[in-house]
């Protein structure tokens, strides 16, 4: 199934508007839990999730607002969770790093680097055992390329021909460390090759390219020709955690301003916008309308979250 560029645009704008809406409440310390904003990487979540059906499984990481929204998780429940309210998707027990909505196949996210790769492996194994045709996706970053469990999982997925899509969002920084300081080769996708996993790299800021690659990968997985490793080259426009590491992380964002600027010009949303307008897929007015809808939805979600109570005190487990 190939989705229209307009739908990809809508998915990306919803994520972007949502992410940027957190900046003020974070700086005002209204939101306290650590928030890893997805701004700049929207094309990956939108492109991949558009290739999936509702029944397919995804597992995220610490930076997973985008994955949750792109897979169909509710905006209100996401925002309320970031505010750690009872009405959040994890009822205020998880916060920004633990987003879940099993009803749409968003099975969970966790901030142990590569910690959910093997969980997605198990979901793919379950799919193979049951023969239900579901595909599992594991989203992780370039930092996870240093974890042994990734190699273990690539090997087992290949051995069992599991319907598993490994999506590495290479944003070139493992928290504060540039990629050249964590590995010799920049080509993370090559990790899959010795294990016999179909592996390739795609421009992670080109939603159409990500979507096309994901569509092919998902189709291979469904035909029993998985797993597939997809490295999406992208960049985060905000801090590792919070809006700006130079404010919150006390000058820990050492990225050269020229590099940040270069990537700002490659903004994935402006890129698909240009494509849409050039090919007359939609008019400027229609795109403005999509953005306005997203803004209204996000505003309403903040109101909902702020009105919502905190979880009750003194309970030993969420009920």
């Amino acid at each position: 199934m190939r989705v229209s560029p307009k739908d990809l645009y809508r998915a990306m704008v919803r994520i972007r508007v949502c992410e940027e809406s957190f900046v003020e409440p974070i700086l005002a310390r209204e939101i306290l839990c650590p928030v890893h904003l997805y701004t700049g990487q929207e094309a990956v979540a939108a492109g991949v999730c558009a290739a999936l059906s509702k029944e397919d499984y995804i597992f995220g990481n610490h930076r997973s607002h985008g994955h949750y929204l792109a897979k169909g998780g509710g905006m209100r429940e996401l925002v309320a969770e970031v505010y750690c309210r009872e009405t959040g998707c994890s009822r205020g027990w998880g916060g920004s790093m633990h987003l879940v909505d099993p009803s749409v196949g968003m099975m969970g996210s966790a901030p142990i680097v590569a910690g959910t790769v093997s969980l997605a492996l198990g979901a793919a194994l379950a799919s193979k055992i049951r023969g239900d045709g579901r595909v599992a996706v594991s989203f992780f970053g370039d930092g996870a390329s240093g974890e042994g469990v990734l190699c273990e999982s690539l090997n087992f997925a290949a051995l069992e021909r599991l319907p598993l899509l490994f999506v590495c969002e290479n944003n070139l920084y493992s928290t504060h460390l540039p990629i050249d300081e964590i590995r010799v080769s920049r080509k993370i996708f090559e990790l899959g090759i010795p294990f016999g996993v179909t592996s390739r790299r795609v421009d992670g800021n080109d939603a159409l390219a990500v979507h096309e690659a994901a569509r092919k990968a998902v189709s291979m997985c469904r035909k029993g020709k998985g797993p597939v490793f997809l490295e999406c080259l992208t960049y985060r426009m905000r801090g590792h955690v919070g809006p700006d590491d130079n404010i919150q992380g006390t000058h820990t964002d050492i990225r050269p301003p020229a590099e940040v600027e270069k990537w700002r010009r490659k903004d994935p949303i402006r890129r698909i916008e240009r494509h849409i307008l050039r090919n007359r897929v939609a008019s400027r007015e229609e795109l403005a309308e999509i953005r306005a809808e997203a803004e209204a939805e996000v505003r309403e979600a903040h109101d909902f979250a702020r009105r919502s109570p905190f979880p009750g005190e003194g309970i030993t487990e969420p009920t």
Binding site: Y57, S118, A123, I129, A136, V149, E152, L159
Partner: peptide, 26 residues
């Protein structure tokens, strides 16, 4: 062999796979 799997020596991933499979209903 779909339900009884003798695995490679990969305790971390194999245990994680058991957890993941159980999260999705196994």
């Amino acid at each position: 062999k779909l339900r009884v799997i003798d695995t490679p020596v990969s305790e971390n991933a194999m245990t994680g796979a058991a957890v993941g499979a159980s999260i999705v209903g196994m």
